[in-house]
């Protein structure tokens, strides 16, 4: 018995060692990025030491102010794009999910199947006509190609996720709300929304991070540097860094992922909840 117990302990210790090493391997690149922004360029490509030998303090300042515009503008632009997209996505997806989850109407099954199948529709096959369409609307070089589709619930992932949550709420709630004089909309706002708050929260942070990190769409739709998002600005810095100001680029990259990392750590449980209930992607 005690022998068996001993074996179990050894096994547990080995498992922890493995998990910890893997964890270090996963996180080390990010830690390295942070510390390397304080290194000189020679030191970035050189010794293995994690901490800089000579701390360079101004790489953040110089990186921020490099180029035609400062990163203040790029951060502001990114927020101007991301925040409306998140808000519109939440509102539209909630309405649509409520419609699918709580009412019976003609063609509901077919429409729901279509909605689910658009989850699998490759973006690559619709991107060119979308570009042509937005060009005709005069939306290029603005954030409308991002915001307007989110008003029209063009992110089926979130509809699906919220439908799952709505289905978890007992129908008796709706009935008693009706008896208390609520119509369908006030039932949604007063009864359902408070109950699905965690789901709304996960949807918000997912959409925030995905939109924040988006590169392909920004690359296509935005072409003046004045409107650049952080993704585009970083890529531009990388192209123009002929003088090899590597620490500045790493410093700006660190700042670029900072909002996502902070949100991730503060709202950790919502991520896991969101992903586990829909079981889709991330």
């Amino acid at each position: 018995m005690s022998n068996k117990k001993k074996r179990q302990i050894i096994k547990d210790v080995l498992t922890y060692i493995f998990l910890t090493l893997l964890g270090i391997l996963m996180i080390y690149p990010l830690i390295w990025m942070f510390f390397s922004s304080f290194k000189s360029n020679n030191e970035i490509f050189g010794p293995l030491r994690l901490l800089p030998e000579h701390v360079i303090w101004d790489s953040f300042y110089r990186g921020w102010n490099s180029g035609q515009f400062t990163y203040s503008l790029y951060f502001k632009n990114t927020f101007m794009l991301v925040i409306p997209v998140v808000l519109f996505t939440l509102i539209s997806s909630t309405l649509v999910a409520y419609g699918f989850a709580r009412f019976t109407f003609p063609m509901k099954g077919a429409l729901f199947s279509i909605m689910i199948s658009t989850l699998m529709l490759p973006n690559a096959v619709i991107i060119i006509p979308r570009y042509i369409l937005f060009n005709r609307f005069g939306w290029l070089n603005s954030y409308k190609p991002f915001t307007v589709p989110s008003i029209f619930a063009c992110h089926p992932f979130f509809i699906f996720m919220l439908v799952q949550f709505f289905r978890g709420l007992p129908k008796e709630l709706d009935e008693s709300a009706t008896i208390d004089g609520c119509n369908s909309f006030t039932t949604l706002v007063r009864i359902h929304m408070p109950l699905i708050k965690p789901a709304l929260f996960s949807a918000a942070i997912f959409q925030f991070i995905w939109t924040w990190n988006d590169f392909f769409n920004s690359l296509i739709y935005i072409n003046s540097v004045k409107k650049y998002t952080i993704s585009l600005a970083l890529r531009m810095s990388l192209d123009t860094a002929a003088a090899a100001n590597w620490n500045e680029i790493l410093a700006m990259s660190t700042l670029a992922i900072l909002p996502s990392v902070l949100i991730f750590f503060f709202a950790q449980k919502y991520f896991v909840e969101g992903i586990a209930t829909t079981g889709i992607k991330g």
Binding site: F215, M252, A256, G282
Partner: peptide, 11 residues
């Protein structure tokens, strides 16, 4: 889980 929320970014 952390890397998968940052994976697609330019940074």
């Amino acid at each position: 889980y952390l890397p998968s929320i940052l994976g697609g970014s330019v940074a």
